[in-house]
Every structure is written in C-alpha cells, then in structure tokens.
Nucleic acid binder design. Structure first.
Lengths: 257, 257
DNA sequence: CGTCGTCTTCCACCTGACGGAAGCCACGGG
DNA sequence: CCCGTGGCTTCCGTCAGGTGGAAGACGACG
C-alpha cells in the first residue's frame, strides 16, 4: 500500500496478464502497448506473447499487431456460458425472429448486469447497442428488468441504489423502478421505451425452467405503439418452449439439494 | 520416439496444457483426469488450476469438476474469427433462414477443414452434425466443396489425396471430386447428397469480397428434389449482399500488397 | 473401521523464467 | 546520406519462484 507495488506475480499470472490486456476496446495491440497494459517489461512480454502465438492463443497480424487467436475462440465456445441454454434456445429464437422480424435477445444476469448470450437481428431491425458477450445495466433494458425482477433481494437492493442515467428516459428513481418490477411479476413481461437508446423500445419475458428464472428473452422494436400484445404473445410462446425443453432435457446438472 | 519423452516444458506451456485438456469431448474434468490429460503431476496441475480458477479462465463446478469459465468466453468472442464476417453476415443469414427455413451455415476454410463460423437452424430443420466452432472435412460438405474449389492449388492437391469416407455416398475418388470442383467454378454453387450424413443434402455458394472467396454460405435440407434452383437463388442473393457489404465496409484491413 | 480414490498442502531443491542491455530494422527529417 | 527515433528481437547471468514427491485430509464404500 505504500509507494511501489512490486509485482510478486507468478509466471502464470504474467501469462494471464498478457491475455487480460485484450478487451473489447483493445482487440489489437502492438508489443509495446501490450507490455504496457500487462505491466511487463518488453522482453518478458515478447517471450510470453511468442509462446501464446505458438500455442494459438494469440495471432500475429500482417501489420505486426497481436490479436486473440482462433484457439481461444474454440476454447471460449466450450465455456458453459449457458451453452445448454443457448443450444436449446437457438431454434426458438429463429422462429421468434421469423415471426417478428425484430432484434431478438437472449440474456442472463451476470452479477449486476445483463449479459447478452445470444442475439439475432435482421437487416430491417432497429440498430441496438447490445452484442453477444456484452453487458449492460439491468435497469435500462427490457431483459434486464425481467432479470432484476427475479433476482435475489440483495442484488435488487444494490442495483436500485445505483441507477445510472443512460438516456433522458432512463428510470433512475428506485421507487418507480421497484413499482415497475412489481408489475413485471404481476403481468409477466417488462418493457422499456428509449431508456437504453433513443428510438428503441423493448419487451421482454422471463424464461422459466422448473421454478427458476434462468434467462430473459426480449425483442427490440422502433415503437411499441400497437404491436405490444402480439410481441408479448410471441415471446411467451418462445420462452415457454425454451423453458419446457430445458426442464425436460437437463435434470442431471444444476440440481443442488 | 524412444521410451520416455521427458517434458522440458516451460511454465507457460504447462499452463496452456491445462487449458488444452479441455475440448468438445472433455468439457468437464476432475483434477485427476485433467492432470492426466495435461501430462502433469497432480500437485502441479492443482496449483495451475487454482490460478486459472482465480483468474476466471476455469470454473469449479459444485461437483468438483472443472470447466472452461466465462472469462474465456469473453476472450473467445474477441477473436477475430471472421468477426467482421460474422457481424456483417448475421442479418443476411437471418433473412436466408426466414426465406428457406433450412439450416443455414456460414463457414470458412481452416487449413484442410471447414470451420463453421455461424449456424442457424430452426425447430423444423434437418438435424445436422455441424456446430459453430466445429470442423468437418472439406470434401463431404457443401460449403466445404465451395471452399475447396477456391482454395490454393497446394491445399486442393493435398486434400484430394486424402479423401476419407464418411457415408456410403461420400465422394472419395480424386478425379470425380476434381470434376465436381470444376463444376462449382462453372455453375457457381456446390451440392452434396447424404455425403456427410444420411438424410441431409446441401447447397452452398461462395461469398466473394473484392476478388477473394472469403467464406461459403450453405443450406442443409432433407432433399434437393425440387427446391434446388430456389435455394441457389436465395443463397446467391444473400452471398452477394454479404460480399458487397464486406467490400464496401472494410478497406482498412486485410489489404496486403 | 480399514481401504481406496481423489483432492489438498507442504517444502527443499534447482530449473528455467526474468529483464536489463545491446542489437536490429524501418522510417523520416535534416 | 547520415543519424535519431521508435518499435521489435535476441542474449545471457542471476536467482526468484516453480516443481513434484510425499504426506495428510477427506469421503465413499463395504
């Protein structure tokens, strides 16, 4: 805590620091930038990077920069980030897209954020910020509100006390949001109107497997004017299909007594 | 090759060996199995795994097994495995799916195999083996044939001399396949009939950006009987859309003189 | 209560990682 | 043309920290 924080880092930690230097804002890095971000001497970074490249975790571009390699992609796909969920849901998302032609989202809660697990969008859909793998605040998106409504009290409490404003329409008053969440429970769906990005509205419903809300399913449209009932209906059909498939297909797993 | 292969492995190599122990057939591993697969003493594996877990690369399940963690997923998504391509293509794939209701594939060539980069399939589609991230032989799939037809001569030569049989209908005679590939060039599309899996036929077209074939786009259907012309037409529309978008949108990149 | 299989912890040895420094290369300005 | 600059690569002596055998804990089974 005093002055220089010498780095008693282990070899593995250094290697991981190199990997950690890559993030959505830094998909390509030169050796120097990489070393800087990983807080390593150039020569060390150089050697580590060489090993990672040899292994396939990183790739060297023609221009000399490094980027995450294909092997990481392979490994990433193994991560059970709801891989059952994704696999089961995929066909239902397709159908939902075909029925609505809206941007379709499948998301789960990751701590205090929404994590987008899958997304479909056609050429005619509203442009949206979300990307697969991206995280957004729980209180400003449709799927987020659904997940928040069904989150443990502790999480909900913490989130309610830190409502950031994203657009002029973002709900930032805890009381008002709480009432909205109650409504989500009563009516079975959540909606937003330009609370995350202007010109985009959304509706979302929970995906229930057994008795747990395991995900949220939502669509984004330019306006909710007249379509809401139809969208909600389509969403609920899809969500039920996913939930049912999950419940039937996957007993030997998350179960804990 | 003689007796014991002592492992002069570096620390990083050991860490990577642990990661490499995970593959699609081994998504969950106990410590012992993991150590075995990574060829490491238990205690070493134990320590490395602990570091990886701390970092988020692995996750410990309730039952004690390890699996790839969410952080790897995040990292994997950064891999530019055709991320431009995937992003650009996604809406076109949606439309193609909506138009055909068939399983839709987007694939690139990875050395001597097809690598599936994206896939859509509805509930009504034929079941297929491919998964996003999986690799299949070039000569037994529609997208594979397209990519093979446009591969460098060296690659094509090597592949033609090692045609494995997958089903009774797989083309395994180099001459015959070569003629098929010529036809792909002439007619602009490739097809298969139960050459990869019984009950599944496919049509595929190249995705051309500038003058290069950067990917292949294909659909899988139960039978080609009457639909082929329609499917080919739909595929070509989508492929052209993708190609055009890629060509327009991404000059400051792959360009090499 | 012993046995077996699996996981966890410990620690003395010694390997192989570390990183400063020097070399290399391409570029650009004087 | 020559030198300065910035970014990358290579080298090698030192010694931090990784290694792995062994012993201990845990839990399941009979």
């Amino acid at each position: 805590m005093h002055g220089d924080e010498t780095a008693p880092r282990t070899a593995s930690a250094r290697l991981l620091a190199v990997l950690a230097a890559f993030d959505p804002e830094h998909r390509r890095l030169g050796l120097t930038a990489l070393a800087e971000r990983a807080d390593l001497p150039l020569s060390t970074a150089h050697r580590l990077v060489a090993e990672l490249v040899a292994w396939g975790a990183l790739r060297r571009r023609a221009d000399g920069d490094y980027e995450v390699g294909r092997r990481m992609w392979d490994l990433g796909l193994l991560a059970p980030v709801q891989s059952d969920l994704r696999q089961v849901a995929s066909p239902f998302l397709q159908d939902l897209y075909a029925a609505t032609l809206a941007t379709v989202h499948l998301a789960v809660r990751d701590r205090h954020q929404v994590l987008y697990v899958d997304r479909l969008s056609g050429r005619t859909s509203v442009p949206v910020v979300s990307q697969v793998g991206s995280r957004l605040p729980l209180h400003a998106t449709g799927v987020g509100k659904v997940l928040l409504a069904h989150a443990p009290d502790a999480v909900r409490g913490e989130v309610l006390h830190a409502l950031t404003r994203v657009t002029p329409y973002t709900v930032t008053q805890p009381g008002r949001l709480q009432r909205e969440l109650d409504r989500v429970h009563r009516e079975g769906f959540a909606q937003t109107s330009e609370e995350m990005s202007l010109g985009a509205c959304s509706v979302a419903v929970p995906v229930v497997a057994g008795t747990d809300v395991v995900a949220a399913l939502g669509v984004v449209v330019p306006s909710l004017k007249r379509d809401r009932p139809r969208l909600v209906a389509a969403l609920q059909v899809a969500a039920q299909g996913i939930g049912r498939t999950l419940t039937l297909g996957l007993p030997p797993d998350g179960r804990r007594g």
